[in-house]
Design a protein around this nucleic acid. Structure first.
Length: 255
DNA sequence: ATGGCACGGCAACCGTGA
């Protein structure tokens, strides 16, 4: 199984780029974040022509997630259980090939002051509870998406981010570790323990040419899937294209 | 030393992103 996650920063702006990438990379499952549109605006036909079925959890203007898959799947959730506060479209969960796959767009946590940050932390707690419940059922599990978490200092280029940023605050990192402690493996870091690996470069300040990036898009897999990992890496070349997203796809292959 | 971008919604900028 080849699975990818990509924050595309508006699917309507990025349709051509994403379609071209899908044709080249041919993932079995592609999780999209920040599609920034309602389901009716999602260009499902274009991907249907490539053999992909879409499940879209959309929202006007902000957020929005989707799954594209060329293998059969069943939708198991369109929101993260917990608080009834998710007017925000940030979670979609499917079952495919015997694996539960959650595509997520975790709140950034920098807007709305401490209230916004608290929402991020609660969202992480709810994600942990969901993952724990699925693992308790004995499911093989993949959590993939834009976590808006830079797990460790080596996941940020020096000077790329302020210490007070919600992506690196200790409370954020502690909750990410709690997820890992459920028994999940950070696929990219597991296969690249010493490498400098980034998945995001800001549009501003020449962040891409200066390689001032962050690693904030992740694929976490349960133990038996970790043993099947063959490759796990971002596709950096996508950041060099015309009108790119500020994130690149992260691709994982399981044998 | 510093400033630097892009998106959607809307019809002038502004909230958000990270």
């Amino acid at each position: 199984m080849k699975l990818a996650t990509w924050n595309v920063n508006s699917i309507r702006q990025r349709e051509g780029l994403v379609r071209a990438w899908v044709e080249r990379a041919a993932p079995d499952v592609l999780l999209l974040q920040e599609i920034k549109c309602e389901a009716a605006q999602f260009p499902a036909e274009g991907f249907g022509a490539l053999g992909y079925r879409a499940e879209v959890v959309g929202q006007k203007t902000y957020n929005g997630v989707a799954v594209l898959a060329r293998i059969p799947f069943a939708v198991t959730a369109r929101a993260l259980p917990g608080e009834a506060e998710d007017a925000q479209a940030r979670y979609v969960e499917i079952e495919a090939g015997g694996v539960t796959v959650a595509g997520l767009y975790l709140p950034n946590g920098n807007s709305g002051g401490e209230t916004g940050f608290a929402y991020k932390l609660r969202w992480m707690d709810r994600l942990t509870a969901r993952a724990q419940a699925l693992l308790a059922e004995g499911r093989s599990l993949i959590l993939a998406g834009d976590f808006n978490v830079c797990p460790a200092p080596e996941d940020a280029a020096p000077g790329a981010i302020d210490a007070a940023d919600a992506l690196v605050r200790p409370e954020t990192r502690a909750r990410f570790r709690r997820l890992i402690w459920l028994g999940l493996t950070d696929a990219v870091r597991a296969l690249h323990p010493r490498d400098r690996v980034f998945t995001f470069w800001d549009y501003q300040a020449g962040a891409w040419p200066r390689d001032l990036g962050l690693r904030i898009d992740h694929v976490l897999v349960s133990a038996e899937l970790a043993e099947r990992l063959v490759t796990a890496a971002p596709d950096r070349a996508e950041r060099d294209r015309a009108q790119p997203s500020d994130h690149v796809p992260v691709v994982v292959e399981l044998e």
